[in-house]
């Protein structure tokens, strides 16, 4: 069963920190790739996040937990999105 609670700081903070560090690194990315490649990165990221899974003490949907045996490493997704956004905002081609 999908739960939104208990949702603790320890489930949200890594996502926020992952996004912030990803954005910082994204500002240093210089590349000229197609939109298809970006979509591929996002798809691979979601596959990777399902393989890495959420930490065992994560219980909320925001933390990446869906049900036993199915969860996503949310910081991995947020870090990837942070890198891509940082690249789009401050990076270069």
């Amino acid at each position: 069963m999908v739960m939104l609670f208990p949702m603790m700081g320890g489930e949200i903070t890594p996502i926020v920190v992952g996004f912030a560090i990803g954005f910082l690194f994204g500002t240093q990315v210089y590349s000229n790739v197609s939109r298809r490649t970006v979509v591929m990165i996002i798809c691979l990221c979601i596959v990777g996040a399902s393989l890495f899974q959420a930490p065992v003490f994560t219980w909320s949907l925001i933390g990446g937990y869906i049900t036993d045996g199915l969860s996503f490493a949310a910081p991995f997704i947020s870090a990837t999105i942070g890198i891509l956004l940082g690249w789009a905002v401050r990076g270069g081609k």
Partner: peptide, 15 residues
């Protein structure tokens, strides 16, 4: 890109 994100995942999992 994904390796860099994986590195970030590792440090955020320090808790």
């Amino acid at each position: 890109i994904l390796l860099a994100a994986y590195g970030i995942l590792i440090v955020t999992g320090a808790a």
